[in-house]
Computed example of a mutant assay.
Amino acid sequence: MGKISQKGYIVFVDDGSKDQTWNRISELSKGNSSFVGNKLSKNQGHQNTLLAGLMSVKNQCDMSISIDADLQDDINCFDAMIEKFYEGDEIVYGVRNNRDKDSAFKKFTAQSYYRILKGLGANIVYNHADFKLMSNLVLEGLSKFSEVNLFLRGLVPMIDYSSSSVYYTREERMAGESKYP
């Protein structure tokens, strides 16, 4: 207890959705400073949307945790991530501990993806997507990149601050379908 400021808040970023997402974010944030919404003018893509959210909190926090709204990543990892931050890690990766729920094809393509990237020299965390804690120091470092075609999973490790991982079992998607092919 007491590891997160009472001034902490959750930022939702709407990536130009055409459904009721923005209306729901607006309703949630009305009169409640715990929730903030950012609406992008159009669909900017997953990585640009994630970066927009992170940059909107830069210099306003000691740390931030990025997580996709489909809630497949385990919010119960937050405590362990925050603990690792207070132990000195500037980046804490949320890493899937298995791919048991993936189809054989999905498992094969995902594992091949990580192997190929590693073979090409990418410093990438195996089975990590975009669920991570980053300190404001890391956000500041990330803001220095002028990349247009973003790949945050590859950029964040390049910032080269102390890091660790928290492992979890990924849940089934609560609603909707993945936009990733």
Rank of each mutant, 00 (worst) to 15 (best):
residue 34 S to W: 05
residue 37 G to A: 05
residue 37 G to W: 02
residue 38 N to K: 15
residue 40 L to G: 04
residue 40 L to R: 07
residue 41 S to A: 15
residue 43 N to I: 10
residue 43 N to P: 02
residue 44 Q to F: 13
residue 45 G to W: 02
residue 45 G to F: 03
residue 45 G to E: 01
residue 47 Q to M: 14
residue 49 T to V: 07
residue 49 T to S: 13
residue 52 A to L: 11
residue 52 A to I: 11
residue 55 M to D: 07
residue 55 M to S: 08
residue 57 V to N: 03
residue 58 K to Q: 13
residue 61 C to R: 10
residue 62 D to T: 14
residue 62 D to R: 12
residue 63 M to N: 04
residue 63 M to S: 07
residue 67 I to Q: 01
residue 69 A to F: 02
residue 70 D to K: 02
residue 71 L to M: 12
residue 71 L to H: 06
residue 71 L to K: 08
residue 71 L to C: 12
residue 71 L to N: 04
residue 73 D to E: 11
residue 74 D to I: 11
residue 76 N to M: 13
residue 78 F to K: 03
residue 79 D to S: 09
residue 80 A to K: 06
residue 80 A to F: 01
residue 81 M to H: 01
residue 81 M to P: 01
residue 82 I to C: 01
residue 82 I to V: 13
residue 82 I to D: 00
residue 83 E to V: 04
residue 83 E to M: 01
residue 83 E to S: 05
residue 85 F to R: 02
residue 86 Y to I: 03
residue 87 E to H: 02
residue 88 G to T: 05
residue 90 E to C: 07
residue 90 E to M: 12
residue 92 V to I: 11
residue 92 V to G: 00
residue 93 Y to R: 03
residue 97 N to F: 04
residue 97 N to Q: 12
residue 97 N to V: 03
residue 98 N to H: 11
residue 98 N to M: 04
residue 99 R to I: 10
residue 103 S to W: 09
residue 105 F to T: 14
residue 105 F to V: 15
residue 107 K to P: 01
residue 107 K to D: 08
residue 108 F to V: 11
residue 110 A to S: 13
residue 111 Q to S: 14
residue 111 Q to M: 12
residue 112 S to A: 14
residue 112 S to P: 00
residue 113 Y to C: 05
residue 115 R to P: 00
residue 115 R to K: 15
residue 116 I to T: 15
residue 117 L to F: 12
residue 120 L to V: 12
residue 120 L to K: 13
residue 122 A to Q: 10
residue 122 A to W: 10
residue 124 I to C: 09
residue 125 V to T: 14
residue 127 N to I: 06
residue 128 H to R: 07
residue 130 D to R: 07
residue 134 M to R: 13
residue 134 M to E: 07
residue 135 S to D: 05
residue 136 N to H: 08
residue 136 N to S: 09
residue 137 L to K: 15
residue 138 V to Y: 04
residue 139 L to G: 07
residue 139 L to H: 10
residue 140 E to S: 14
residue 140 E to P: 03
residue 143 S to C: 06
residue 143 S to D: 04
residue 145 F to L: 07
residue 145 F to K: 11
residue 148 V to H: 08
residue 148 V to R: 12
residue 150 L to G: 04
residue 151 F to S: 07
residue 152 L to D: 02
residue 152 L to S: 04
residue 153 R to D: 11
residue 153 R to L: 08
residue 154 G to K: 13
residue 155 L to Q: 06
residue 155 L to G: 02
residue 155 L to D: 02
residue 156 V to N: 03
